[in-house]
Amino acid sequence: MDATSARKKAVIYRMVMPDHTCPYGLKVKDMLKRSGYEVEDHQLTTREETDAFKEKYGVKTTPQVFVDGQRVGGHDDTRRFLGKTVADPKATTYRPVAVLFAMTALTAMAASYAVTGNPFTLRAAEWFIGFSMVVLALLKLQNVESFATMFLNYDLLAKRWVPYSYVYPYAEGAAGILMVAGALTWLSVPIALFIGTIGAVSVFKAVYVDRRELKCACVGGSSNVPLGFVSLTENLMMVAMAIWMGLSALGVIPSGHVM
């Protein structure tokens, strides 16, 4: 047993006011209990009480944790004290994209199962890409201005015609919805092929030719997803889906649509 786990009693001061309960206080209290600590919980119930506490200990935030009479600190400091990792809000991560694709894949399989009784169908694969395009567009449309700003860092067409950075998420969403419905293929296929091809070329140039380290606007303008292989794959999937549905519409290959 290490030194930190041997200290079994912790004192926490946290805000619990009629109109506000500090969420970090709740998280720290739960974290300490799950780490085997007996928690002495002191609730700061007024703004005056909170301000007096901060002034007394020379701190700017609550909660504050004390172990053996020594101040450990707030939420992040307590995590470090307990040997837990502290997430860096500026660190790049593929988690948003991985979670998105996992959920759209499961949704596509669920829809396929509901319609055919089989989650593993050709239509499920088509739905997966269509659902992914719709959700990606939704994330971009939450803040189009922020998306456009990040998109302009690398998209070749947007750099030459700025309005394209605002049109893109609407086009992606419309193409995705039409592909899910299997409707107006004559419209959805050219849109997806156009934006997917430009996107793939833009990402390839920025990452593999110019060697730039950028963040991808694929899940919105405030993401920390690095521009790279995943971004390129997203665009290539869109292109592949457009080609597949175009060939299906022409009868060259079998369609996954349920009749």
Results as ranks from 00 to 15, higher is better:
224 N>E: 06
134 V>D: 02
196 G>W: 03
127 W>D: 12
219 V>N: 01
109 M>R: 07
229 F>E: 05
140 K>L: 04
227 L>W: 08
150 M>P: 00
115 V>K: 12
118 N>F: 06
181 A>R: 12
175 A>E: 03
136 L>W: 00
181 A>T: 14
171 A>R: 04
127 W>P: 01
171 A>H: 08
202 S>F: 00
182 G>W: 10
209 V>L: 13
224 N>D: 04
199 G>N: 10
227 L>D: 03
185 T>I: 08
176 G>N: 07
145 E>I: 02
148 A>T: 01
169 P>W: 04
217 A>M: 05
156 L>D: 10
214 L>I: 07
191 I>P: 02
145 E>M: 07
141 L>C: 04
212 R>P: 01
206 A>N: 06
165 S>N: 09
202 S>K: 05
164 Y>T: 13
211 R>W: 09
227 L>H: 04
126 E>D: 15
209 V>A: 06
224 N>M: 04
185 T>K: 10
159 K>G: 12
128 F>N: 08
229 F>N: 03
112 S>F: 04
106 L>W: 00
104 T>I: 01
208 Y>W: 15
154 Y>C: 09
145 E>T: 13
134 V>I: 15
205 K>L: 07
221 G>W: 05
162 V>A: 14
118 N>R: 13
172 E>V: 03
164 Y>Q: 11
144 V>M: 03
130 G>E: 04
133 M>F: 11
145 E>P: 00
170 Y>L: 07
132 S>G: 14
116 T>C: 06
159 K>W: 05
110 A>F: 11
221 G>S: 05
118 N>D: 15
162 V>T: 15
219 V>F: 02
177 I>L: 13
167 V>C: 12
185 T>E: 01
218 C>D: 09
130 G>K: 05
142 Q>K: 15
135 V>T: 13
202 S>T: 02
138 L>D: 09
119 P>S: 10
161 W>R: 06
122 L>A: 14
162 V>I: 14
195 I>R: 02
121 T>I: 08
127 W>M: 11
122 L>Q: 15
143 N>T: 01
206 A>L: 10
109 M>Y: 05
220 G>D: 05
187 L>R: 08
190 P>W: 11
230 V>D: 05
124 A>D: 03
109 M>D: 03
131 F>I: 04
104 T>Y: 05
107 T>G: 14
181 A>F: 14
205 K>E: 05
173 G>K: 07
205 K>H: 07
179 M>Y: 10
153 N>S: 11
192 A>R: 01
144 V>W: 00
219 V>H: 02
121 T>V: 07
201 V>L: 12
215 K>Y: 11
150 M>V: 15
230 V>L: 12
218 C>Q: 01
138 L>P: 00
181 A>Y: 12
156 L>N: 10
135 V>N: 12
216 C>R: 11
116 T>M: 08
138 L>F: 15
223 S>E: 09
127 W>S: 08
